[in-house]
């Protein structure tokens, strides 16, 4: 951190759209999240990655205000989700199973959104639905899983939120729909400055799309920060067996038939003999997921406690 200004630092950088400090959530005796701290700036498109059961859905649920933290705090634009009423219309959330009312038609589902949201954008919601050629008079229960996902996303986008939290939104979409909807999401982020947090298992889906990354594993944040900064902090080294890796922080070492491949966080010059290159996002994430003991890197931790917005 080195005293640099960070997202969430009071008065120095843009306001953190989605931030946590010491965040923990326990279900009975099991901690789903523990001691999480991060800050995602407004307008960022953040990928939330982690293995099954790592706490991604819990984190998004806390961000949407559907649950409250057991420890620490979570803030969206400085306000407490679920507790500060003025925040309700500023957060959009799509749950992993995309719950909808099956007996309502598509048109009625959009009316549901219009009736319950004062900032409703009917044109945008209609556009998302019509992009998938969904008949408005069809009952939601008669749609395929992918089509229901599209309706759920139309509901979330039509709300015109400032922060959009999507829990594995693309998992049951065909490639074309995925491409279309990702484009629409990016368009919203670019046009309205919407902060988008997408959790996903499809790592390739994130490449070139996200500008921030949050890797959660075992209920704790292991990577957090701008993608370029995180990628820039790592090197992928290839070389012969026995080459020195000190004084770097070694995250993963893989022995191949021809030598050694290592992912490191460099701390000083790389020893002669290593071929060094920047890892791509997928390589980096897979390395961290394969190495649960690797040291975390969080470039977003606020240097001051989060302030409650007045």
């Amino acid at each position: 951190m080195n005293g640099e200004a960070r997202v969430g630092d009071e008065g120095t950088t843009p306001e953190a759209a989605f931030a946590a400090n010491g965040l923990g959530r326990r279900y009975r005796r099991r901690w789903a999240l523990r001691d999480c701290a991060f800050a995602i700036p407004a307008g960022a498109v953040c990928g939330l990655v982690g293995p099954n059961g790592s706490g991604k859905s819990t984190l998004l649920t806390l961000g949407a205000g559907l649950r409250q933290p057991t420890a620490g705090e979570v803030r969206v634009h400085g306000l407490r989700p679920g507790l500060d009423p003025e925040l309700r219309e500023r957060i959009g959330f799509v749950a992993q199973d995309k719950p909808l009312y099956p007996r309502l038609t598509v048109a009625e589902t959009l009316r549901f959104g219009r009736e319950l949201n004062p900032r409703w954008d009917q044109e945008l919601a209609l556009q998302v639905v019509q992009q998938g050629r969904l008949p408005l008079t069809t009952r939601v229960g008669e749609l395929s899983g992918g089509q229901r996902t599209r309706v759920a996303l139309a509901l979330a986008l039509g709300k015109r939120p400032d922060v959009l939290l999507l829990d594995e939104p693309m998992s049951d979409l065909d490639p074309l729909s995925r491409h279309q909807l990702m484009g629409t999401l990016m368009g919203q982020a670019a046009e309205h400055g919407t902060t988008v947090v997408i959790s996903t298992h499809i790592l390739s889906e994130l490449d070139g799309v996200i500008d921030h990354l949050l890797l959660v594993d075992g209920g704790q944040v292991r990577l957090a920060g701008p993608v370029e900064e995180i990628l820039g902090a790592h090197l992928l080294l290839d070389g012969a067996e026995g080459l020195p890796l000190e004084p770097h922080t070694v995250l993963e070492v893989r022995h191949t038939g021809r030598g050694v491949s290592a992912l490191v966080r460099p701390d000083g010059p790389v020893a002669e003999g290593w071929r060094a290159e920047s890892p791509d996002l997928e390589q980096l994430l897979l390395a961290y997921l394969r190495s649960p003991e690797a040291a975390p890197l969080n470039t977003t931790v606020p240097s001051t406690p989060l302030e409650v917005a007045a």
């Binding site: 009736e115 900032r119 491409h179 368009g187 046009e191």
Partner: peptide, 30 residues
């Protein structure tokens, strides 16, 4: 990745006049 950036629109929340059910009441009625 193509971006379907949409033009800026005015929001169109449900009109608040008349006796028709609104908000959650509409949903309940439906």
């Amino acid at each position: 990745m193509s971006s379907a950036v949409l033009a800026t629109r005015e929001t169109s929340a449900a009109p608040r006049s008349g006796l028709r059910p609104r908000g959650v009441t509409w949903l309940t009625w439906r």
